[in-house]
């Protein structure tokens, strides 16, 4: 496996993390070293091996479909950084047309 240099600024944008220039530089060095190490996985032969996404087989685990008590509106909003009229308050999402 090739070890491409990670573009931390781009990945941080995908991850919604507003990094400082210093962080971007530091993480680039750290992550390129880590990616250089994990490149060794390419050396293991996994031909015909099924990926193991879960340690134990669990299939279609669903609880019985009965109504249960959920959090009250008040409890659900209790940890919100900003709320108004029983709802989460967020910045304007739709830009106005000019």
């Amino acid at each position: 496996m090739d070890t491409p240099q990670i573009d931390v600024a781009y990945i941080a944008k995908l991850a919604k993390l507003d990094l400082t220039a210093e962080e971007t530089e530091r993480f680039s060095a750290d992550l390129n070293r880590i990616l250089g190490y994990v490149a060794q996985l390419g050396e293991w032969d996994t031909t015909g091996v099924e990926p193991m996404y879960h340690p134990l087989p669990v299939f279609d685990a669903v609880r019985t479909d009965t109504a249960e008590q959920s959090l009250s509106n008040e409890a659900a909003l209790a940890n919100a950084p900003a709320e108004e009229d029983g709802q989460f308050r967020v910045p304007k999402v739709v830009e106005s047309a000019h």
């Binding site: 496996m1 996985l41 293991w44 996994t46 091996v49 099924e50 990926p51 193991m52 996404y53």
Partner: peptide, 9 residues
């Protein structure tokens, strides 16, 4: 995907 295959091994 590769890591999950190695995990199976």
């Amino acid at each position: 995907a590769k890591a999950q295959k190695v995990r199976a091994l």
